[in-house]
Structures are given as C-alpha cells and as structure tokens.
Amino acid sequence: MHIVVCIKQVPDSAQIRVHPVTNTIMRQGVPTIINPYDLFSLETALRLRDEIGGAVTVLTMGPPSAEDALRKALTFGADRAVLLTDRFFAGSDTLATSYALSQAILKIGETWGAPDIIFAGKQTIDGDTAQVGPGIARRLELNQLTYISKVTRVDVEKRKIELERRAEGGTQVLASALPCLVTMLEGSAEIRRGSFVGALRAARAEITTWSAADAGITDLLKCGLRGSPTVVKRVFAPSPRAEKAKQVEVKPKSRETADDLIEALFEAKPAMQADLELLAAGL
C-alpha cells in the first residue's frame, strides 16, 4: 500500500510576535513545527503501513527550510519525503496550493506507484482554513473523507475502506473506496515519539526536492499569486477595547467581594438579574 501524507511547516503560533508599528509578523527566531493537526494523519498513516505493509511518502510545499519538517516526519518513520519548492508558488491561496500539491501527488504516483490513500491534516494553525485537503480531493477527483476519528478497516485488494466520521450530533460510520483523501480529527491517535535510530536515519536520508517543472507543473497561471482567486487587501491588528477592566476591590472576606462584584454586574447590566433568575430556575 502506498500512502501520501501532506504536511505543512508552520510557525509555532503561540510565539508569534507582531511588530507594533508596521503590523508585520516578526518571523525571525520564531521556531517552526509540523502543523500539529498533520501529526494525527501522519500517525494514522504510519500505523496502517505497519499493519498492512507498504510505504508512506510525506509531501510538503514550502520554502527550502521546510525540509526540517520532512526530516522530522522521517524520524517518526515515514519512508520517503518530497519537498515541492519554487518561487512560482509564492503567494498561493488554498486553490493554488491544492493545485500544486495535487500535481505533485500525480508525480509521486508516477514515480513510486499510485497512492491508495492521501492524508491531509484537518486544518493548519496558520492558514487555518481546512480547505487544502478538500481542494486536493476535488482536483484529483477522489472521495473525500474529512473529520475522521477512526480508520476501522482498509482492504487494499478489494479497494475498500471503513471509517468513522465526526458529524453534528453524532458519528457517521462510513464505507468508501480506495483511493481516497482522508483528514484525521485531533486526538484520533496517540502520536509516537521519534526513535533515536529514526533520527539517525532521517538525518542521512535524501529528500527529493522538486521545482514546479520537476513536478510536471506547466500551467504556472494556476500557481502562486496568479493562480489565487483571493487577495489579501489589508492586514491589521485587532483594536483593543477602549477601557481596561474595572477592578472590584478585594475585601478581607471573599463573600463581601463576591457580593460587591454581583452588585457591580447588575448595575452594569440591569436585565442580568432577571435573566440569571430564569436560568437558575432552569427556564
């Protein structure tokens, strides 16, 4: 079985700083990680391979430094890694990204055999759109199975797959066919730690690096800025609330402070007392 996993290198967003004057992201020194959601897909892919046999190819599109994310994935146990990198991809929105990735997946198929399952993350923490997975599926005309909590069964011979999908108010138990595109839900698998041996192997592994031309992408109008129907017109910082919180004086007795707070709330919002009385009565 051949599985392709799309991973993205993202800034560790908790540590992002915004320049106070220019409103630009200060990227210098911000550590990068594999998009956390992608790890659940990678883990699921590795387990399926361990169970059924075959190979896992990890794919990322990004700057040359995105190689770090691929090496990390190799440490976890992926079999090979492909980096798609080209200045033509700069400024891609989700439509252009899904085009480039889908072309690279076709090329991966030509090179190492057609994939049976393609995994993407549920969403990224920087783009945060959850669109690239569905975009790839449509471009390749694959069945799309998102928000999967569990891959129950894969039958490579019979080309069948069974999974559980998170829907509103419950779980859909689905049967579908290979090949397909799957995005895994967070928490759907316990993520392994990379082994020391894996790290050594990853450090030495060769990473296949493709330009647009290498990946067989000839229609550059579908790439980067030109292939992106959306444009970012304005980037700005959220405006802070005009006034800071009013401090309620802390009295020696907590109960007194509590009563003062409640008094202040009811004064600020006169309807609140009646609202709360209804709620408390379970109405």
Binding site: L95, D128, Q131, T146
Partner: peptide
C-alpha cells in the same frame, strides 16, 4: 462547521473560485 467546511472546500475548488474561511 464540519459539514460546512467539508462542503465549502470542495464546492469552491470545483467552481475554481475563492473561499475565505472563518
């Protein structure tokens, strides 16, 4: 939602139009 994001992504790609999430 899970349904809306699943559907929006594939409809936008099929129509080759822009989609802004969240």
């Amino acid at each position: 939602t899970n349904l809306g994001r699943d559907l929006a992504g594939s409809v936008a790609t099929t129509l080759l139009t822009g989609l802004t999430a969240d």
